[in-house]
């Protein structure tokens, strides 16, 4: 696309990210790129930009801050050309997303100690699918993986995970439906130890972050893990649906309070024209965003980096 070519790409493109963000790029972000085809930087341009950013789910406050920063930079650097202003916007967007990566912890995989990932989130965000993708990712790195079917509540959640397990050739630790999730986690920890498993991925039932008792249940699961491995869970992954609006902030906040989220995965990015909640989370909470889900296949997952994410929104090979 002509206008995206004008926009200087800086990061190495990640085809996975670009494919996943295709829809976002064609929607709101294409309109944003078009804004800067005007001949000068006017108040109208800022206003239109504001409306587009809100439509991309950035939220009112994040949008206002982003625009303030953009104005500052434009004034400071004496920018006159809209194309330079667009570059300034890109810089500011990346800077904003850096809040979501600077707190990311380096993951240390130790031989003989299972690296435990506890996967949490509200109902229907894509936890089970994310687990399948993570399993695949670790397999490719040559690590041995085991999955724990900790969602004992939703009808047939265990079967769903078992089917994924079979397709991937990954063992699945499961108990009966409606049994205590703590018990299956306990057995999973033990089995991981006995079988020298590198990566233990623990699924949990979807739960709304406002339900106190269910959040307590997550704390209990974490305590059980810590009885086996003191550092566990080394990764507490919150899965957020990319189509989520401002409630995503509330989710991140509540889950973090309960179980100290270490990483966020944004799932179903392929379905949305927005993906702006990443910016709102970065700004307001700074919780590390680590993965993005970009499709329905096992391999449709990518690491989140501010540069590729922002560029993915604006560029990409959309020859049609």
């Amino acid at each position: 696309m002509i206008f995206s070519r004008l926009f200087k790409r800086q990061a190495e493109p990640d085809p996975q990210v670009e494919a996943g963000l295709k829809k976002a790029r064609r929607g709101i972000f294409q309109d944003i790129v078009k804004l800067f085809e005007r001949s000068e930087i006017t108040e109208d341009l800022y206003e239109d930009l504001e409306s587009l950013l809100i439509q991309a789910d950035l939220g009112v406050e994040t949008t206002v801050e982003l625009l303030d920063n953009l104005r500052d930079r434009i004034r400071r650097e004496g920018i006159k050309l809209p194309t330079d202003a667009r570059e300034a916007l890109r810089t500011e967007m990346i800077a904003l997303l850096h809040h979501a990566t600077k707190n990311r912890k380096i993951k240390i995989y130790q031989r003989g100690v299972p690296f435990v990932t506890l996967v949490v989130g509200v109902n229907g965000t894509g936890k089970t699918t994310t687990i399948a993708k993570l399993a695949r990712y670790h397999q490719k790195q040559g690590r041995s993986v085991m999955v724990v079917a900790g969602d004992t509540f939703r009808a047939a959640a265990i079967e769903q995970l078992k089917i994924w397990g079979e397709r991937l050739g990954v063992p699945v630790m499961a108990h009966e439906p409606n049994s205590d999730p703590g018990a299956v986690v306990f057995d999973g920890m033990q089995a991981a130890h006995n079988r020298n498993i590198d990566i233990l991925l623990v699924d949990t039932a979807g739960r709304l972050h406002t339900k106190h008792n269910l959040m307590e249940e997550l704390k209990k699961i974490r305590r059980i893990m810590q009885r086996h491995v003191e550092a566990a869970p080394q990764e507490v992954l919150l899965v957020i649906d990319a189509t989520t609006g401002q409630n995503g902030l509330s989710q991140a906040r509540h889950f973090s309070e309960a179980v100290e989220i270490t990483d966020i995965a944004i799932a179903k990015l392929d379905g949305t024209a927005k993906g702006g909640i990443a910016f709102a989370i970065a700004r307001e909470l700074g919780t590390p965003i680590s993965y993005i889900g970009t499709g329905e296949k096992f391999d449709d997952m990518a690491e989140f980096t501010p540069e590729t994410y922002v560029d993915g929104l604006f560029f990409g090979d959309d020859e049609e």
Binding site: D57, D241, T243, T244, G245, Q251, G271
Partner: peptide, 12 residues
């Protein structure tokens, strides 16, 4: 439709 859906709800 999920009550938590953002701006995307309309196009869906």
């Amino acid at each position: 439709a999920d009550a938590m859906t953002g701006q995307e709800a309309v196009s869906v």
